[in-house]
Amino acid sequence: MPLHVPLAPAPALRSVLTALGSPTAVREARTPALRSAQGPLSPEHPLPVHVLDLLPGGDAPATRLAAWRFQIRSTERAVAAADIMLTPDGWAFSHFFEGPYIASTELALRQAEGMSHPYQPRLLSIPDLYMLALWLHDDPEADASCGSPGPADLLVPLAPAPPGIAAHRPHRAADLLPVITTRVTPGTGPLLGSPAPA
Rank of each mutant, 00 (worst) to 15 (best):
R172M: 13
V26M: 05
L55M: 13
M131W: 04
F96E: 03
H117W: 08
H4P: 05
P121V: 01
T181Q: 14
D53L: 06
G189I: 04
D139N: 15
D143V: 05
D143I: 02
A67S: 07
R110L: 12
G193D: 12
L20D: 03
D59P: 00
L7G: 06
P170T: 07
V79F: 04
P46V: 02
E44A: 10
Y101D: 15
L34V: 03
D153H: 13
P61E: 11
R35G: 04
T105Q: 12
A142F: 10
L124H: 07
I72Q: 04
A80T: 02
V5Y: 15
T185K: 06
H171F: 15
A81G: 13
T75N: 11
G164Y: 06
Y119Q: 13
A60K: 12
A66W: 04
R69S: 00
V49Y: 00
L17M: 09
L123P: 01
S125L: 05
T18Q: 15
L7D: 11
W91G: 02
H117T: 14
R183P: 00
L65G: 00
S42F: 13
S104M: 05
L177E: 14
P197R: 11
H137C: 10
V79D: 10
G187R: 13
P195C: 10
S145W: 00
G99P: 07
S145N: 09
